[in-house]
């Protein structure tokens, strides 16, 4: 074999060899465990903190409010839909208070009249004209909106 070809094969052999070594050392440990991805990634993704707590946690302390809510139209709505995520409040109920939306704009988000809103799913009002300027909870108990 001509000398130049021998030298070239040496160079290429070295290059391929180093690639194999690099692949061996740089491939993450849990790769190929379940498929073409790092198996550890599943644990890393599930380690994220859950901010919204589960449905029953609120009723454990606030049972009277929960009972009122269950007797009216808002019974199918989760507490955290209006009050926001509860994970901080569960840890330290005194220090971390939940959101208590008081303003008109909040209720309007769902109840403003919009032709795209199915009438049988939700009662809708004219966002501007209905009791103009008033705050909703003046007349409606948010946990029992229809007395």
């Amino acid at each position: 074999m001509p000398l130049q070809v021998k030298r070239l094969l040496l160079v290429f052999g070295f290059f391929i060899g180093s690639m194999i070594v690099l692949i061996h050392f740089l491939t993450p440990d849990s790769f190929y465990q379940f498929g073409h991805y790092r198996g550890k990634a599943l644990d890393e993704i599930s380690n994220h903190e859950a901010k919204y707590v589960d449905v029953k946690s609120c009723a454990m302390c606030h049972d009277s409010i929960a009972a009122v809510k269950d007797s009216s139209f808002h019974k199918s709505i989760n507490c955290e839909t209006c009050h926001g995520p509860g994970y901080k409040h569960i840890e330290d109920p005194e220090k971390n208070k939940m959101d208590k939306p008081q303003d008109r704009e909040f209720c309007i988000i769902c109840h403003a009249k919009n032709p795209a809103r199915p009438q049988k799913e939700i009662k809708q009002i004219d966002a501007v004209e209905h009791n103009k300027g008033e705050v909703c909870i003046t007349c409606h108990n948010p946990h029992k909106p229809w007395e």
Binding site: P2, L3, Q4, V5, R7, L8, V11
Partner: peptide, 18 residues
């Protein structure tokens, strides 16, 4: 040149063919 110092006509023919 990878320390190859062959300048013979044979090596040049090889270069050309390859």
């Amino acid at each position: 040149t990878l320390w190859v110092s062959d300048t013979s006509e044979k090596s040049r023919k090889t270069d050309d063919k390859l």
